[in-house]
Design a protein around this nucleic acid. Structure first.
Lengths: 168, 168
DNA sequence: CGGCAATTCTTGAAGTCTAAATAAAACAGG
DNA sequence: CCTGTTTTATTTAGACTTCAAGAATTGCCG
């Protein structure tokens, strides 16, 4: 389709050739990488990448525990998705739920010792995979620029699970 | 965890602080953007982003048709995933399958007129969403660099659905 | 206080994806 | 040819995600 300098509001501003190329490269990179890491972790840790990210997040939290809502926000997923995920991880014995002392509605997700152990054993392989896919292939300047770009993009997007009241 | 300059093969090379920050920014950006575009397209076009990408790919192909395997490769998904997707898109009347004349095993995915029409009507909104999330927020230099980085990453990863014979 | 609204989290159903198994046709050699 | 392998595509079952709905609790405010 076309790309015109015009300002006709009826005519959408299509992507330039360079923008298209970048967008396509982005789609390919993210699709392939997500797929790659999902396989790597499914094979080595028995869970998809996002579940692994939940364990990591918990492992870095004080007392290895976090409120459900905050955990969901940190990892950028909906509370619903988190509920299902934690249910599964709980079956594996890698996570546990406790009632929140200060808010009777709340739950606290806790990383179990077994969960931490899984992390300890599989973290090296995972870092290696991430490194091989990204950091071993970019210059330090590119890493910095890449981080800045991703931050910019992320900062412009609504948090996941931002329930209805976005039009208030 | 630590980061040591040592070359002990037993001690994994953890990510530096800057690498961690970049990796986290990447995860946030991709998670949020994928989610955002999925919602945008589900709302405006009635399908997830990857399905939309299939229609786009077909629309740009000669005679708006493509062999299943090639379509899967172009969009970086497995043949299995494509089979499911096309089955669904066929129900919507947006795609159609034809037998391949030259290879009796093969199938050709064809974009229907209805499918093209959906694309025509929803493309402007989708470009706008992509533009708002990415291109309106980056400088031209960043766009170029971003494209180069994504290309590098993508080029280092195996194609999806690369069946077993990878250890041949 | 009393009640309505918002928050927190879970659930169930429908849609999608993965992994492994299957079927069918093409190919490659002996 | 005829057989074993590869390629192409689909199918099944199970896992995961989304969306809408629901239950319990808290917070606001007149």
């Amino acid at each position: 389709m076309r790309n015109e300098p015009a300002t006709d509001p009826a005519e959408p501003r299509w992507l330039s050739a360079e923008e298209q190329a970048t967008w396509l490269a982005y789609l390919h990179a993210t699709t392939l990488l997500e797929d790659h890491l999902d396989r790597q972790l499914q094979r080595d840790a028995g869970m998809p990448h996002i579940y692994y990210a939940l364990l990591v997040q918990l492992s870095e939290a004080p007392r290895r525990r976090m409120r459900m809502t905050e955990l969901a926000q940190q990892v950028k997923i909906t509370r619903s998705r988190l509920s299902h995920a934690v249910a599964r991880l709980e079956k594996n014995g890698w996570m546990r739920r406790e009632d929140c002392p200060s808010d009777r509605r709340g739950q606290v997700a806790v990383l179990t010792e077994e969960g931490f152990e899984v992390l300890r054993k599989t973290a090296p392989g995972h870092v290696a995979a991430v490194r091989a896919a990204i950091f071993d292939r970019l210059t330090p300047e590119q890493v910095a620029e890449f981080g800045a770009i991703c931050s910019t993009i992320a900062s412009g997007l609504q948090p996941a699970g931002a329930d209805l009241p976005w039009l208030r």
